[in-house]
Nucleic acid binder design. Structure first.
Lengths: 116, 116
DNA sequence: GGTGTGTATGCCTTGACTGGAATATAACCG
DNA sequence: CGGTTATATTCCAGTCAAGGCATACACACC
């Protein structure tokens, strides 16, 4: 199994939202449904994808199922990213040197104020 | 603009392959076509997606267009990943402790021999 | 200007993925 | 056992993205 499953699992914004929720703490399906404003079936399906990708694990608590993050696949992502890290470190260094060499008033505004 | 574009751009395995190619060195479209075993139009379309996501930049060289990696968006990915890093570090620590506490012969085989 | 190479775009078809509604399954409770 | 809550699954329709093919565009060379 490649990490193709991982990527396609994380490609969906709702699933990334779920993963982010589970980063705080494990949650039952009901909690996730409320937090994500999704229907229950849809949520269950997303959780299935995440489970199949190995990103989350389930614990049964009476009728509830509590989902928790499994950090291992994230490490795989990090490993994938590693070769690129060297690259952008070089770029940042170059940027830094350029900023140092410039008169002034060329400070960057706070970078990414992105929202997903 | 969110990093939704980034994720969907990298969700495709062919595009990840292209990005990996460009990590080695910038390449013309023709080179990418050959390396990826894709049709030229398909490759061009993938490159468009990557360009729109800010992952690559183009330089024109006569009739050729040479694509190069832009590392900045990868940093965004790294930022996204950062909160999780703490998590799996904890897990690895726990694993390490468990391994230390175990008799022996429980060494892990080399982890992920994954292929994408 | 005409031809050839290199690359991008448009159109179309097909397959995959998503969400909703209804339904099935499972566990608790009286 | 019947009812209720919590979650999973199935079915279906709508959407979107990918690939192939044909074609348009851009540049070079004669």
């Amino acid at each position: 199994m490649s990490d193709a499953v991982l990527w396609s699992a994380l490609a969906d914004p709702h699933r990334r939202a779920i993963v982010a929720l589970l980063l705080e703490r494990p949650r039952s399906v009901g909690e996730i449904v409320q937090a994500c404003r999704l229907s229950q079936p849809s949520t269950s399906k997303h959780l299935r994808v995440l489970r199949d990708a190995g990103l989350v694990r389930v614990r049964q608590d009476a009728q509830r199922r509590v989902y928790a993050l499994d950090p291992a696949p994230m490490a795989a992502l990090d490993a994938w990213l590693a070769p690129y890290r060297r690259l952008w470190n070089e770029s940042l260094d170059a940027l830094g040197r350029r900023l140092d060499a410039v008169p002034e008033d060329t400070e960057e505004p706070p970078p990414q104020a992105q929202k997903d």
